[in-house]
Amino acid sequence: MTRLSVNINKIATLRNARGGNNPDLVQVALDCERFGAQGITVHPRPDERHIRYQDVLDLKEVVTTEFNIEGNPDDRFIELVKRVKPHQVTLVPDAPDAITSNAGWDTVRYADLLRHLIAIFKEDNIRVSIFVDADERMVEGAKAVGTDRIELYTEPYAAHYAENQEVAIAPFVKAAQRANELGLGLNAGHDLSLENLRYFDEHIPGLLEVSIGHALICDALYYGLENTIQMYRRCLSSELGFS
């Protein structure tokens, strides 16, 4: 069964819009776990426009499911991750001013850098995942640098899902199959939603985890957070309903 990690960045965005501590990010993380989330994901950025570095330290003390910290591995990020020692770090090549992540690593061009970064995190027994496009060459490059997992960047799939599901999923199936052949763990994330998640999960072999934030929090405005998390869980497992 594919695990659901809830990205709580948008909760921090809402809190930061007014200052203070409403909503309480730590309490929301605890509630997500109580409602069925199997992991918590955060993506701190240098300007701290949503998740703050102190948030990550606070969450370290209370998260009991898998804790995943993702981001661009600059010096401050590296220091934070090594201090917190989460279950997983996901390396994302987003620029400091990026609104959101918009591409995966070129694992061939940046092989030396990635190999160096992975070694740093492995010193603390932190599982490493690399954000990559659905490109078999990039998957092979990820294997070569020694990562434990890859996270497929799924925005292109989501963007074309309504037009043609089979065409949209095809490169992701190939990338996943290659990852399986190479013994890489497989995660996925970005723009996955109630509309497209079930189809993705059913067609991607060996999918271990999805990280979902924006769509899930938007849905929670209508359905409530507990119900929404259960709805996403059902998309990932027929055992929870939805035949």
Rank of each mutant, 00 (worst) to 15 (best):
S129P: 00
E66Q: 13
P86V: 05
Y110M: 10
A142V: 09
D74L: 04
G39H: 08
K174F: 00
A119M: 13
E79M: 01
I169L: 07
T228H: 02
L186F: 09
D94M: 10
N125P: 00
V26A: 07
R34I: 01
D31F: 12
N196T: 11
L184A: 10
Y110Q: 14
A170L: 07
S101E: 05
G206A: 13
H116W: 14
D124N: 14
R34M: 11
Q177L: 14
N9T: 00
A95L: 15
T107H: 06
T13V: 06
H214K: 02
A111E: 12
G19C: 07
L91F: 13
E155W: 00
T228F: 06
A37F: 03
E136V: 15
F121L: 06
N72I: 00
R109M: 07
L221I: 13
G224F: 06
A175K: 00
Y153E: 03
A17H: 02
A37M: 03
E123C: 07
G183T: 10
L4T: 03
H214L: 01
L208K: 11
Y223F: 14
E163L: 13
I229P: 03
G39S: 11
E155I: 05
K143H: 15
K122V: 06
R83Q: 14
I99S: 14
K10D: 05
D75R: 11
L225I: 13
L197K: 05
L80F: 01
L113F: 10
L208D: 15
L194I: 10
N125F: 13
Y157C: 05
F242M: 14
E48P: 03
L186W: 07
P205N: 10
K122Q: 15
D201I: 15
H203Q: 14
Q88E: 14
S237N: 14
R18W: 04
T65N: 06
L30A: 06
A179K: 05
F172E: 01
G104Y: 08
A162Q: 12
N72K: 02
V62E: 12
N125R: 14
S237Y: 00
E79K: 12
I118W: 05
T147A: 15
R3C: 00
D201H: 15
Y53N: 08
T228L: 03
L208T: 09
I150S: 08
T154H: 04
A134Q: 11
E163F: 10
T228Y: 03
P46F: 02
V210S: 05
